[in-house]
Write a protein that binds this DNA or RNA. Structure first.
Length: 217
DNA sequence: AACTCGGGGCA
DNA sequence: TGCCCAGAGTT
């Protein structure tokens, strides 16, 4: 495979992405920052569809962080059964709710440092909450964004934080959240990890990876 | 950098 | 059956 070009048609790629996925949005169901925070913690290695099913019952029963602090890990684990990594998530959410209750008056903090200090909340989850619940521009880099932006040569790194920085330089700040969603939708629908559907991808003429795949067998 | 957690959906 | 799912924490 050829080395990545130093400059790519970034504007064209971004324009095409927004044209391909004009309705790209967060597919998790949530009504407030707390629900988004919990749903996003739960979404790791789980489908958003399953998260929505589980959280519907969970939030009806336990709408506020205060409602969680007296549960045991086992009790909460039972509530979120059906999702992957559910023991870790149960422990983290319980701890997070205790911190939200004792230190933040039951509210979700709006700054990154406070968010990332919560158990189960890393860079990616913090960015999702900031951008989707608080309208703070932040480009969350998950596995889809990492893979797709590298294939398009919009980024050149396996480190999510590094990719986030590279994208921040190339994407207008006002578009960070939309671009984030578009890259994810593209990664799920066409630019999949194993067998990307390059033959029906409108980005193929502009794609470093796709052009290198054509005729490479 | 390499593990570990992990059940459920879907081809 | 194998592969994948909007990661984070620990070693």
């Amino acid at each position: 495979m050829k080395p990545k070009p130093k400059r790519v048609a970034t504007k064209k790629i971004l324009a095409l992405l927004s044209q391909m996925y004009p309705d790209a949005h967060c597919e998790l169901d949530f009504r407030n920052p707390f629900e988004l925070l919990i749903a996003t913690i739960l979404s790791a290695q789980s489908t958003d569809k399953q998260v929505n099913i589980v959280t519907k019952g969970l939030f009806a029963k336990y709408p506020h962080p205060q409602n969680y602090i007296d549960l045991t890990e086992e009790e909460l684990a039972e509530e979120i059964r059906g999702l992957g990594l559910y023991r870790n998530k149960s422990r983290n959410i319980l701890q997070t709710c205790k911190i939200l209750t004792s230190q933040y008056g039951g509210e979700v903090p709006t700054n990154r440092a406070a968010l990332e200090s919560l158990p189960g909340v890393g860079r990616k989850t913090a960015n999702v909450v900031l951008s989707n619940a608080f309208d703070v521009p932040a480009l969350a880099v998950d596995t889809h964004v990492l893979r797709v932006s590298n294939r398009l040569a919009l980024a050149d790194s396996d480190n999510p934080l590094e990719v986030e920085k590279q994208l921040n330089h190339k994407v207008p700040r006002k578009d960070w959240t939309d671009t984030h969603h578009q890259l994810i939708w593209h990664g799920r629908r066409i630019c999949s990890a194993r067998k990307p559907k390059c033959e029906r991808c409108d980005l193929l003429p502009l794609c470093w990876y796709g052009k290198n795949q054509v005729g490479s067998h």
